[in-house]
């Protein structure tokens, strides 16, 4: 379990990193917290010719308020988000979900951008980003663009980014008024990969009916999975236990098509999806 040899670069500014990525193309990998990449390299499942270490680029570490919400530099450590009063105030769903991500030791190194860009279907952050309508800013040596979170994920461990692009920033807008939120997941052990997870936001109208709702699952597909039919079903309805139960059943039966692995078969994953959907929708509706 020793990695294959690789060239190592430690740039200090983003432009330098982008130039290296442009130069090496797909042969280079940006190194953020390294919590997924380094084990993958030790197993020799990944053998990048070059690593571009982002840990020395100070300008990528920040949490800033803007008029719409919060902006996180891509290298912001997950532990920093977990302890940030700004995150607690502006993005309480993100803040609440952070302790579910692996173990504290991993969150000390793991970064928000690293996890978002790695696109692991069992990861919490991609599902949260979609639930919260986050937008990603990616840069290359030749330009910069914004990608909505729901367009960012295009398959298993795959994003819309080109090899020469780098995720530099993610923007989380504030939740609309009368919006509740909740996150929950089931893992065999705390800190382990979730067998299933769910993030929800529910915005209520003046009459208490659901005006808008987001329900996103993790660990039941090739990436974060939006429960589109459940969302349609519950929108416009009063969030009664019966309505939530119906939405959860729809989500589990129709919105996901989970595959089994050694930890959970498809039937158990569907069962958990239903349990978790009901839990997060109930909690989110109560807060809205």
């Amino acid at each position: 379990m020793k990695p294959a040899s690789f060239a190592y670069f430690a740039p200090h500014i983003v432009e330098e990193a982008l130039a290296l990525l442009a130069e090496h193309g797909g042969d280079a990998k940006p190194l953020a917290g390294g919590q997924s990449l380094v084990p993958t390299m030790n197993f020799r499942l990944a053998q990048p010719a070059a690593l571009v270490d982002l840990n020395g680029i100070d300008e990528l570490f920040y949490i800033r308020e803007d008029k719409n919400g919060l902006r996180f530099g891509a290298m912001t450590r997950q532990r920093t988000v977990e302890r940030s009063p700004l995150a607690q105030r502006h993005t309480p769903l993100l803040y609440e979900a952070m302790p579910h991500i692996a173990h504290a030791q991993i969150r000390n190194r793991g970064t928000i951008g690293g996890s978002l860009a790695h696109a692991d279907p069992a990861a919490e952050l991609p599902a949260l980003a979609i639930a919260l309508d986050a937008r990603m800013r990616v840069r290359s040596a030749t330009g910069s663009r914004w990608i909505a979170a729901r367009d960012f994920y295009v398959g298993l461990f795959a994003t819309d980014m080109r090899p020469d692009e780098l995720l530099v920033e993610v923007a989380f807008p504030d939740l609309p008024p009368r919006t509740g939120w909740a996150f929950d997941e089931v893992a065999r052990q705390h800190g382990n990969y979730a067998l299933c997870g769910a993030a929800a936001t529910v915005t209520l109208a003046d009459d208490g009916a659901v005006e808008r709702m987001r329900l996103i699952f993790l660990s039941v597909g090739e990436g974060p999975v939006e429960a589109a039919q459940a969302q349609t079903l519950l929108t416009g309805e009063q969030p009664t236990p019966m309505a939530i139960r119906a939405a959860a059943e729809t989500a589990a039966a129709q919105d996901i098509d989970p595959v089994g692995d050694i930890h959970a078969g498809p039937a158990f994953r569907r069962h958990l999806a239903q349990v978790l959907a009901a839990r997060v929708l109930t909690r989110a509706a109560r807060k809205g």
């Binding site: 089931v186 065999r188 067998l195 930890h263 959970a264 078969g265 039937a267 158990f268 069962h271």
Partner: peptide, 11 residues
């Protein structure tokens, strides 16, 4: 056993 297997056995 596991949660998954227990689920199956209970079902």
């Amino acid at each position: 056993l596991s949660p998954n297997r227990l689920f199956e056995l209970v079902m």
